[in-house]
């Protein structure tokens, strides 16, 4: 871990401003991913801006009938919130499917969106990786790719977005509220928040330099039955091979997003028209452009089967 200086931010705007003004600065909230990567020098910030003291840790109801979740609301608290459990069950289910109790106590709403990939080659600094070291090559495409993306990747990178929470947020049409160094605020639709790698896999989100996440907003509840089915090798404390976040209405219509399959939570709205006809109708369209490796092509039938399991549960 490279040496770094450290400050506690006084306000969101001040944090953003400091981040833009200080070379090599990064925000730190829960730190559960950033410190992990700093120990390997995959992240090497020269300056850390601790945002934990900012009062962004409440969940409020919005005028539109939804929720506004402060960026510093811990995963545990978000999952346990009575309103979330009642109206946005898919979100609670996704959060508690991720990591461990200890990590969820630290991890924040904003930080979780910033989680980086668990690609084994990204994690080994001796290996080529276009995400970690642009231009060095991708060791994963022809390497150990079992956990990696089957769709949305590029010739430069097939890393998977590893999180669960954002997959549920994607199906809930969440918005990511931010403040920029100049004080400007904006809301980025969750669909646009994570970027596909293209030629620049090191650029993972739509955030500008120094831009700070302040909240995530959820539109008013859409009802329906909520599911988050996470398939993994061991029963807990593991990343998804495939996950399905779904909301199924009584008439069989609904929404679905997939985790563990792409560089971002994967949702193809047009494919959801097929929900009432069964899983295959959805996945055939949602994964029409899939480009798997030999090691991870099982994720395609697995995604279909997992959605099938969810739909069967919804019918039961």
């Amino acid at each position: 871990m490279r040496p770094f200086t450290y400050e506690r931010a006084a306000s969101p705007a001040a944090a953003a401003k400091a981040a833009a003004a200080t070379p090599g600065a990064k925000f730190i909230a829960g730190g559960t991913n950033l410190l992990d990567l700093m120990k390997l020098e995959i992240e090497a910030p020269a300056h850390l801006i601790d945002v934990n003291g900012l009062k962004l840790d409440t969940i409020e109801e919005t005028d539109e009938g939804g929720l506004r979740i402060g960026a510093l609301v811990r995963n545990t608290d978000l999952a346990a919130d009575r309103r979330v459990r009642r109206d946005y069950g898919v979100l609670t289910r996704a959060i508690v499917a991720g990591a461990s109790g200890q990590l969820r106590n630290k991890a924040t709403t904003g930080g979780n969106l910033m989680q980086r990939t668990r690609c084994p080659y990204f994690y080994d600094p001796n290996m080529p990786c276009n995400k970690r070291k642009p231009g060095s090559g991708c060791a994963a495409i022809q390497g150990f790719s079992r956990s990696l993306a089957v769709i949305g990747g590029s010739e430069a990178c097939i890393a998977t977005y590893p999180g669960d929470m954002a997959v549920a947020m994607r199906v809930l049409d969440a918005g990511v509220e931010t403040v920029k160094p100049d004080g400007e605020t904006r809301t980025i639709p969750i669909a646009d928040f994570h970027r596909l790698p293209g030629d620049t896999p090191d650029v993972e989100t739509a955030l500008d330099p120094g831009e700070l996440i302040t909240a995530v907003t959820l539109p008013k509840p859409v009802g329906g039955a909520h599911f988050y089915h996470k398939v993994r090798d061991r029963a807990s404390y593991a990343f998804a091979l495939v996950s399905v976040a779904a909301i199924v209405q009584k008439d069989g219509s609904g929404r679905v997003a997939f985790g563990g399959v792409a560089p971002k939570p994967w949702r193809v709205e047009a494919a959801e028209a097929g929900m009432s006809q069964g899983a295959k109708a959805v996945t055939a369209q949602a994964f029409a452009d899939a480009n798997p490796t030999r090691e991870n092509r099982f994720k395609l039938p697995l995604a279909e089967r997992t959605l099938d399991a969810v739909l069967a549960q919804a019918r039961a």
Partner: peptide, 15 residues
Amino acid sequence: MERSGIFDMSRRGVL
């Protein structure tokens, strides 16, 4: 389509 399992010399290949 499935990605090829052999090395190539493009940027995506490494060895």
